[in-house]
């Protein structure tokens, strides 16, 4: 089958049944939030899931303009290509983009190299996110997390209740029956909403391919300067990255399956240079995408712990 045929059919009508169902479910969830909350926001992490989420939001509210802002929590350690892509996306779509950095963390010199991944994530991501939500008084925040990513995420509701202080208590989540979402909260309480809950990584890539959704070029294989550490390829993105005495960056054909802060996200060797290549690679891979996220294996059940503290 010719790929170009698939792409021209890649409108809503031409989408495969399964993706069409997922798309409709996500749109329903997004409209629910706009109808029920006073001040929603969409977390935008620049990655592939955020790209899909943004694309779905534009569809959900069409012909109205996007009725909520995007929020990017900038740890100051994102790949340069990510920041360029972020700004270009906001400009291209005319979107209200908020960028928040934990200035207190910057002043204290917190970073993945100096402080270690655990402290960096806590201060520059989790704390920063909570600051931004409080600063603007957002009562609902969309996130692009999927249940297939990680096993504590598989337990997550679509409407995830957070008590004052953004605390997630997995034992005290509301039962979520049918599509009847309970959106009621008291002042100070918030809801995190996950419209991509039922998408898998493969669904995301198929959808990106069929809908021609722009993504950060780092997802495509290219010769990039990397060093080998703890069995992982780490990209040298700028001179803040301290090389060990015996380390010399070498050029390898690599790409990223997941994007986070640059010293904490590993690249994989790959020759996938098109979306079609990526989808083919996805079908034969034997490792999970979070393998590339070094922060996840810090401690057992660490995703759950981070989520309790207010992480997405």
């Amino acid at each position: 089958m010719d790929i170009s045929v698939l792409q021209t059919q890649g409108t809503q009508r031409g989408l495969p049944k399964h993706l069409r169902g997922l798309e409709a479910e996500s749109i329903e969830i997004m409209r629910e939030v706009i109808a029920e909350f006073k001040k929603p926001v969409m977390l935008y992490s620049i990655g592939k899931d955020s790209s899909v989420m943004l694309h779905l939001a534009i569809k959900a509210f069409h012909p109205a303009k996007l009725p909520l802002p995007l929020l990017h929590v900038d740890t100051t350690w994102k790949f340069r290509e990510m920041i360029a892509f972020r700004d270009e996306t906001a400009r291209r779509l005319g979107i209200d983009l908020l960028v928040h950095t934990n200035q207190d963390g910057v002043a204290r010199g917190i970073g993945p190299v100096a402080s270690g991944s655990s402290v960096h994530t806590q201060v520059m991501k989790t704390e920063a996110l909570k600051q931004a939500l409080d600063l603007h008084g957002f009562d609902a925040a969309f996130g692009g997390a999927r249940r297939d990513e990680e096993k504590s995420r598989a337990k997550e509701r679509i409407f995830s209740f957070r008590s004052q202080g953004h605390v997630w208590d997995p034992r005290n989540q509301r039962p979520e029956l049918w599509n009847l979402f309970n959106t009621r909260i008291r002042p100070g309480e918030t809801i995190r909403v996950f419209p991509l809950s039922n998408w898998t990584e493969l669904d995301i890539w198929l959808y990106i391919m069929l809908e021609n959704i722009p993504v950060v070029p780092l997802y495509f294989a290219k010769q990039r300067p990397v060093v080998r550490r703890n069995g992982a390829w780490i990209m040298v993105d700028d001179d803040r990255f301290p090389l060990e005495a015996d380390e010399r960056p070498e050029s390898r054909l690599v790409r990223f399956r997941t994007l986070g802060c640059y010293p904490l996200t590993a690249a994989v060797e790959s020759d996938a240079v098109t979306l079609e290549d990526i989808v083919s690679e996805m079908r034969s891979t034997r490792v999970s995408e979070r393998q590339g996220r070094l922060i996840d294996s810090d401690e057992a059940a660490s995703m759950e712990k981070k989520k309790r503290e207010g992480y997405f």
Partner: peptide, 15 residues
Amino acid sequence: MDGVAPTVQQANKDL
């Protein structure tokens, strides 16, 4: 390349 078309078709199966 040849892996993609079947994948798209697979997504057309029911749930």
